[in-house]
Computed example of a mutant assay.
Amino acid sequence: MSDAADPKPALVQLFKGLADPTRLRMLAAMVDRPRCGQDLAAEVGVTPATVSHHLRVLSEAGLLRETRQPPYTFYQLDIEALQGALKAVSTPKRVRELATASPVDAETRDVLRAFFDGPRLVALPAQRRKKEIVLEEVLRRLPRRREYREPELNRFIEVVHPDFCTIRREWIMGGYMEREAGVYRLAPRGRAVLDGG
């Protein structure tokens, strides 16, 4: 489940695997003993085709152990994989590390270290490239919304840095956001940042 270079994709896939009520019921049925697809279909009350789909998702998420006993394949929850994922998000510090753990270049890492003290932005850099790195990092910390009213956006920014007016203005000038009648929306450049582009 772990990717030494960047654990994020594997963790995201694991948590996506858990983000479905049917899959959770299937995992609960597999906690104590291995189950075959037919058992799971009967236990959870879904079709064998639905079970097959969910088993594939759970397997790709690294949550299953498989044992083949022809003509059946038996599945059991890989409790160690689940515990490892929970440990990865078990403290605020780990969550912050995970949120910023990405395959970034040395320059970006150095800038973030120099201008952030934990979750807080200490100062906005004067140099354009460094400023962009910082503005993009603050943007990534916003809750995803289709639009933001100005007072709401101010509150979100204030968690990171007290000068929300400057940050807002820089996002507009940098093409990360657009503003109309006190409502802010992500511009294509801002959407690209949040989509990992």
Rank of each mutant, 00 (worst) to 15 (best):
D3M: 08
A4Y: 10
A4D: 14
A10N: 11
V12H: 07
F15N: 01
K16F: 08
G17H: 05
L18K: 01
A19T: 09
D20W: 01
P21T: 08
L24S: 07
R25D: 09
M26L: 08
M26S: 01
M26H: 08
A28D: 07
M30Q: 05
V31T: 13
V31R: 15
R33Q: 12
P34R: 05
R35G: 01
R35C: 13
Q38G: 09
L40P: 00
A41I: 05
V44C: 03
V44T: 01
A49I: 10
A49R: 15
A49Q: 12
T50G: 08
V51Q: 05
S52E: 14
H54Q: 11
L55M: 04
L55C: 03
R56Q: 11
L58D: 00
S59R: 11
S59D: 15
E60C: 02
E60G: 07
L63G: 02
R65I: 09
T67D: 10
T67I: 08
T67V: 09
Q69G: 02
P70L: 14
P71H: 05
Y72N: 12
F74E: 00
F74I: 06
Y75C: 04
Q76G: 06
Q76Y: 04
L77V: 04
I79R: 09
I79A: 13
L82G: 04
Q83H: 10
G84H: 15
G84I: 03
G84N: 15
A85Q: 01
A85H: 04
A85V: 03
L86G: 13
S90L: 02
S90H: 04
P92V: 05
K93G: 03
V95C: 08
E97C: 05
L98F: 06
L98N: 02
A99T: 12
T100V: 12
P103C: 10
A106S: 14
E107M: 12
E107Q: 15
T108V: 14
T108H: 07
T108M: 03
R109Y: 10
R109Q: 15
F115M: 05
F115Y: 15
F115C: 14
P119T: 15
R120S: 11
L121P: 09
V122E: 13
A123F: 07
L124F: 08
A126G: 12
A126N: 12
Q127G: 13
R129F: 07
R129V: 11
R129D: 15
K131C: 11
K131E: 09
E132Q: 15
V134A: 00
L135H: 02
E136P: 03
V138M: 09
L142K: 06
P143E: 09
R144V: 13
Y148M: 00
Y148E: 02
R149H: 09
E150T: 13
P151E: 05
E152P: 03
E152T: 15
E152N: 03
E152Q: 13
L153R: 01
N154C: 09
N154T: 12
R155H: 08
R155T: 12
I157C: 03
E158S: 09
F164R: 14
T166R: 10
T166C: 00
R168S: 05
E170M: 10
G174R: 13
E180M: 00
G182I: 03
G182K: 01
R185S: 00
L186C: 04
P188R: 00
R189S: 12
A192W: 00
A192Q: 11
V193E: 04
V193C: 00
D195M: 08
D195Q: 11
G196T: 06
G196A: 02
